[in-house]
Structures are given as C-alpha cells and as structure tokens.
Design a protein around this nucleic acid. Structure first.
Lengths: 339, 339
DNA sequence: ATGAAAGCGCTAACAC
DNA sequence: GTGTTAGCGCTTTCAT
C-alpha cells in the first residue's frame, strides 16, 4: 500500500534522471521535451504513482484549478444536471468544481461573488439562469476581469462566451402543435420576469399565434412566477373564465403541474376537456397524471460545453464568441390531445 | 478598489507591529496571544481586508480545507438538500465542499474514492445512502485512516460518527394511521435492497401490523427498487389481486407516485377506493393529484450536522460516537382517507 | 506570550 | 531541449 508514499516532483526527477523542471513540463504538457525524455518521465510517474500537489501548484502558479458554479434555481433536477455537465468537463480538464448557491435578488450579490473569486481562489465562474441576466453581476465580473461563461443569457451577449438553446423556437413549435390539434383558445402562463430565459418563451407562443388565423386574446396570457403554486393560481384564473381555454401552455413544468392539479380539482378530464403543455421535461413531467407534454433541453451537455468554453478561456485560447446554440425537442405525452 | 491589493500575512504583521507567527495565531484562533495583541492584529486584518491564501496554508499545513461529499442518489431534491446542509457548515467552518457523484455498484468504488482523497486533497468525506452501507467502501476508508461521517447508515455503526433519522418509527406511525383509518389490507412496496436505509422502513410496517389484530399477509408485500417505474409495476401487481389492498404504503415518494399513476389508469378514485402513502416528502409529493401523504425528514439539518461532526473530528476534537438521531414527521395530505 | 528560520511542492524566469 | 534559481504565502518547529 503506497498510501503513505506521497511521491514528489523531485522523486520523479531523480528516478527519471532529469530535472524537476522537465518533469513539470511533461506533467503540464508543455512543448520542448524530447519524446524519449517524455517517456522516461511518464514511466517514473507511473511507477511512483505520482500526482502533483494541487496546493503547491496553486501557490506557485497563482491559479486554483477550481471553477465556481453559481446558481439560484428552485429546480433541483436542473441544478443536478448542470452540476453533472460541469463535473464532466472538470474531470477531463483537471479542475475541481466549487458549487455556490446564491440569491439572484440579493442586493450585494456582485460583491459576494467577487469576494468568492478573490478569497476562495476560483479561476473562473459558470453562471446559470436567472443569474446569467443579473446585469450588476455580469458587469461587475467584466469590470473585475474575472473569466466567466453563462448558460442561457438573454442580454448583454457580448460580455462573455455562452451556451443557449432555441427556447423560443421550441415554444413556437409547441404552440403550433396545439393549433394543429384544433385548439383556438390557448392559454399561456408566462415565466418569472426575473428569469428571462423562461420569460422569453412567450415570444415563441406569440409568433405562432401571429402566423395562424387565430386572433390574439391578451386575456389568455397570465403572469406566472415559475412555481407550482403560481401555476395553479394562474390556472384557476384561466379556467374560471366564461370562455375558458381548451389548452394551456405553461412556461415551465412546475407551473404546468399546477395547472394539472387545478384541472383535477375542477373535475376537468385531460386531455379531453383540457390540454396542458409544459417546458423543461423535469422528473415531475412523467410522474403526474396525465403525463405531461413538454420540451426537453440538453442541460447536461450545455453545462459541459459551457465549462469547456471557460477552461479554454483560462488556457488563453481564443473562444469563439458566437457561442454554442443547442436544440430543444418537444416530447409529446398524454396531457395534450385534439380539441 | 483594493481588488489588486492582495495583502499577505507579512503586510498584516508589519501593520500590526508583530511577527508573522502572531498573525497566524490570531487567524487560526490559537491560544497564547494577549487580548490587546489580538485586537491590534484583527484591526490590521480588517484594514487590509486580509484573507489567508488557501493554497499557501494547504501546502504548509498539509491539509486542504476541503470536504468531499459522496452520493449516488437518483433523487435530485435529496442531493440538493444534502449539499445545502453540508455547505452551511462548510461556510461556517471555513471549508470548501467538493461534490463527487459516483456509482454504488461500481466494483472499484473504494479505490476510486481513495484516489480522490489522495490526489484531490480532501480532508474528510461525507457519505450518503446508499453509499453509507457499502461495506467495501466503509472498510477501505477505515483501513486507510480517512476521516469520514455517514448519513443514515444501517450497519457497522461503530466505523465512524453518523447521523440518522427514526425512519422505522415513522414507518410504524404511518402504518398505524392507515390501520386507524380502517384499512385491513395494506399493501407495502419495499425499498431497493442495496439502499438499506429505505429497505429497513419495512420493519416499521411489520411492527405496526404485529401489534394490530390484523393477520400478516405476505402477498401484500412486494419488492420495489425505489424508482417511479418500479412503483408502478408493484402497484399493478397489488391492484391486480382478487382481494386487492385498500391502501398501499410505498417506501419512498417516487414509488408512491408510480402507485398513484397506476391507480389513475385503473380508474380508481383516491382516497375513496385506494389510500396511498409515501416516504421522503420530495417535491413530487405535493405536485401530484391527489397530493401525497408522506414522511418528511430533516435532510438539510442532518447533512449540516454530519459535516459538523466531520469538522470536529478533523480538528482533533473527540466526537461522541453514539451519533445524532433526528426525527421524521408524518405529513398528511389528500391521498389517504377512511376505508 | 512572541519571534526567527526552515521548509511545504510546485512554477516562472532565465540561463545554458 | 534542458537545468538552475527563486520564490508563491503560509505553518511548523524551536527559541526566547
């Protein structure tokens, strides 16, 4: 058991018959090492089970090899997926991931995050919605020169590299499907205004209606706040109308679940009397009755890609600013049907 | 903007007119510093906004000030809650948290984790179910002398400090309630055998039945695997019986959600024709129809407490091995009612 | 109660 | 292509 061994770079250098610096070059994949030398060193590393000390290299290089992941999202599954994606890249690139839940409406958020960067030795940050659109935070990071990337930002897109999905297009597709099913009165529950990425899904709904021959009725659009409870309240409002909608499209699954509950309590059969659609494909979507037609996003891939962009940036490689755009896909389940 | 300042321990020492070592004593709350000296130093620290460099102290002290959180749990909300609790303690105690999802049935799990400890400079580990009961892992950590704590272990309890809940008692209570509602045929869906903490809830069900005048019918107990789908399959089996149960108690909420779906598909009214109970109080419990009667555990507090025990251990303080036992509570919602 | 000196294991800057 | 020399900012002895 070589658990106590703790080989250092000097041990490797001695065994390989080279200098410390050469070992360092091999470890850090720097150029200017002869192939044969590299192999000797690698053999020594393997034999001694040498692993560089992160603290030593952090101290010497003044970098932490830690990425910070910032989030303020009530959806546990979203956060877990983002973590998973970020971790995949971190493992590949030799970084650690520091998770940092915070409050997007905390007035001193920017200071808090800058303190994290300064004191908790984080080399760069990954911002997720709704933090991606907190102007004060984004500006603060740019000003302080902190490397960062964002998931699904909706504004200030030149501030940093980012990854996003075609949400609006997917919302457009979903609305078109409902129209094709014969629905003419389609209620829409808008997302939390602070959570721009969700809020903007409304544009897709609008676009689809404009293309159709249906006249837009603004009383069919109600403001939600992304939570199950707000979804239920919005549904109560929509379903209480004299000429109630035959379909309701909620900007996320939690709200759609609220719609379904409210419909159950009103004794409405779904999809016979009411079609319901959501967005996100969270676990609840297939755990409720009827199972929810929704839109799935490649969250893990987005996060993994975002972390890659950040690592590239940290390695000094130019990152293409036009960013990565990934595709959502509509998942049809049992909650939608013909009018 | 003192963002570039980067005061070091020398700067503080100079300003306070003391030696580096004295500053170090103050920062680390060591004894043998006169109160007046301490104050001078603290003033200097405040004025310079000094924060110790983690990498420097890690290198010098040969500790990382990082705790590792290990998990392999399909419930995103459980993991998020555990993270939150662990983070609370980490923030207070000056530690960082490294998250490490893994596979409990991976044959080389123990080696993987030991490599993490050895190379990723983690001072101690927090194990969550079902990892808390992976004998090979637990034994490996003990043998290697790695400090660790566990959440909800069911065996080998002397191996390390731990925190647990009175699951079995809560399962007993829940079963009693169903009996009081007049149910005489209560189906039970057991938890995944690998996930001992969940699996042992069965004992509570058994105990309650034994105390009652109801005769135990083993055909009412089916083996689940903690997932929604397995819950649904088990429900299909139970509800397909000639003399089907009037209540079903599933060992966790995901399986209970599966039961509810299956009942919907069979056109059974709940709770009129079937009562359903779950365990865990995950978000889905109040998002489904009917809302689910279940048991709530103080997950965040457990994780926070566990991290505290670990930190104490790392600080060399003796940890009381009898460990902390926290209470669950039954939450009655709409899925249960009189027979 | 306080201080001086010696590293911790690595990278950076500059030789050669 | 490779080696030498200084630190990075702390904690640890061990003095005093």
């Amino acid at each position: 058991m070589s658990l106590l061994a703790k080989a250092t770079i000097d041990d490797v250098a001695a065994l390989a018959g080279v200098s410390m610096k050469t070992v360092s070059r091999v470890v850090n994949k720097e150029p200017n090492v002869r192939a044969s030398t590299r192999e000797k060193v690698q053999a020594a590393i393997a034999q001694l089970e040498y692993r560089p000390s992160q603290s030593a290299r952090s101290l010497a290089a003044n970098r932490s090899y830690v990425l910070g992941l910032l989030y303020d999202n009530p959806s546990a599954s979203y956060v877990i997926d983002v973590q998973e994606g970020a971790l995949q890249t971190c493992r590949r690139a030799g970084y650690d991931l520091l998770i940092h839940p915070c409050r997007h409406n905390e007035p001193e958020l920017a200071d808090e995050v800058l303190a994290l960067v300064r004191h908790s030795r984080v080399d760069g940050l990954i911002l997720t919605p709704p933090l991606s659109d907190i102007t004060q935070l984004v500006d603060g990071l740019v000003e302080a020169g902190v490397p960062f990337v964002r998931l699904s930002p909706t504004e200030n897109k030149q501030a940093c590299p980012y990854v996003q999905t075609n949400d609006q297009e997917a919302a457009y597709d979903m609305t078109c499907r409902l129209l094709e099913l014969g629905h003419e009165r389609i209620g829409f529950i808008a997302g939390h205004p602070d959570h721009r990425a969700v809020a903007e899904r409304y544009q897709g709904y609008l676009a689809a209606l404009k293309e159709s021959r249906i006249k837009f009725d603004k009383t069919l659009v109600v403001q939600g706040y992304n939570s199950f409870d707000s979804g239920r309240e919005c549904a109560a409002q929509l379903l209480g109308m004299n000429d109630r909608p035959t379909a309701i499209f909620a900007s996320n699954d939690d709200m759609a679940a609220g719609v379904i509950i409210e419909a159950h309590h009103r004794g409405l059969a779904m999809p016979a009397e009411l079609s319901v659609a959501g967005f996100d494909d969270t676990p609840v979507a297939h755990q409720i009755y009827p199972s929810l037609t929704t839109v799935s996003q490649p969250i893990t891939e987005m996060a993994s890609k975002a972390a890659e962009l950040l690592v590239k940036q940290l390695q000094g490689k130019a990152v293409q600013m036009p960013a990565a755009i990934m595709s959502c896909r509509v998942i049809v389940r049992d909650s939608t049907g013909k009018r």
